[in-house]
Nucleic acid binder design. Structure first.
Lengths: 217, 217
DNA sequence: AATATTTTTTAGGGTAGACTAAAAATAATT
DNA sequence: AATTATTTTTAGTCTACCCTAAAAAATATT
């Protein structure tokens, strides 16, 4: 297994390759490589039985491929916790370094790091850390966009794109923070959140798809 | 700069490429690659002006190459401190993981890690950590083999080969420990060390070249 | 000094991972 | 249904890094 193959498998996973067929086009966009390179890598991963391939349709992870994806995400997220908690990174800074570190981390290193960090369940943006065996703890959370006016909730998880995290940092939205959904503007308009202290925050319609909350009672 | 090039430069440095010409043969042994591959890499590093090359004699680091070597060693040793102090690695275990981590560590990551570790001066086997600018703090230490009977000293640094460190672990020799040189057997025989408490430890002649001490008063 | 050995270099090749350009297949539009 | 546009695949290249086998240069030995 090489870093490039690992990144490719992770990209398939992140595009939904656990349950549905992922197109070459999506992989081209996600990895910023040419279409020919995607076909190339597909044939290599196919040979190792990490993916299944439907010609001109796309690829899906096999059980074997899924296991590798989950173990990579475990490594990635444990490093993110380390960078944020111990080295003082902001949550929008952790991604790039974790992406490099995950490929050179032995299982032993990760388990020792995990113990050092006191076995965290979530990474800095609320992503669940998969278990050693590749299983993923079940966490119930709701996309903010599905909430109704009056719902009270805590921020559970947010999308981990650097610019989005920066935006939330600016909006002072952070994990665990409690809000009530005060208002939803019609025609895909913005959502107004209100803290228990009465402070109001306005969130765009599209952003509400990228925020996941835990509704209280 | 790629991991392989970095390893090659580090190997040249470790074979003395700062002050003398290093032969291809030595690099073949150190890196376990073919002689042809060494010539190959030499020409590539030559093109980047990281080494100078005397045909059929060997290579030496340029200022540029030396800077890279020292920065790599800085990264390597800071990771070693982390693995030993925070993750509980024994001193003979740190080398392999540090060797991988050093190639994927941004300068920012290393500086933040350095601060987290409270800016250590030495790695777990006593190696000095080069400064950010590539300069190396001067530390005075004497090879144990050059000591005279009666000398009192502290263990300052030891060679960082895994099996040697394991041997020292077994002999209970560790950094900072104080001994008096009690006896040297003639004809390249073993050396006897004695702790202030009167415990004696016998060290082979060859091992005495790989242990560096700080003589007291 | 001539021969034998060792070391380095050259020549030619292999694999992983990327590319461009063109061909083939699928999907969208008129 | 025919044409156009998009997506995927194939074909051919390129670079980094490694290899083996053979040639060339340097070193050792007789």
């Amino acid at each position: 297994m090489t870093p490039n193959k690992e990144d490719f498998i992770k990209a398939i996973f992140e595009l939904g390759g656990k349950e549905k067929v992922v197109t070459n086009k999506d992989l081209v966009r996600m990895l910023s490589i040419s279409a020919a390179s995607v076909t190339d890598m597909n044939t290599r991963l196919l040979k190792e039985e990490l993916i299944t391939h439907l010609p001109y349709q796309g690829v899906m992870l096999t059980e074997k491929g899924l296991l590798i994806a989950n173990q990579l995400i475990r490594k990635h997220r444990i490093w993110e916790v380390f960078l944020a908690e111990k080295l003082g990174y902001d949550w929008n800074e952790v991604h790039a370094d974790a992406d490099l570190l995950e490929h050179v981390s032995s299982d032993l290193l990760i388990e020792r790091l995990n113990i050092f960090l006191e076995e965290p369940t979530f990474d800095p943006h609320g992503g669940v850390i998969p278990n050693q065996d590749g299983t993923v703890p079940e966490i119930h959370s709701t996309p903010l966009i599905e909430c109704r006016v009056g719902d009270r909730f805590k921020i559970q998880e947010v999308d981990d794109q650097e610019d989005f995290l920066e935006y939330l940092l600016y909006k002072k939205v952070h994990l665990g923070k409690e809000y009530t959904l005060a208002e939803i503007e019609p025609y895909d308009g913005p959502l107004t959140l209100e803290t228990p202290a009465g402070e109001k925050t306005v969130i765009g319609h599209k952003a509400a798809f990228k925020i996941f909350v835990d509704i209280i009672e």
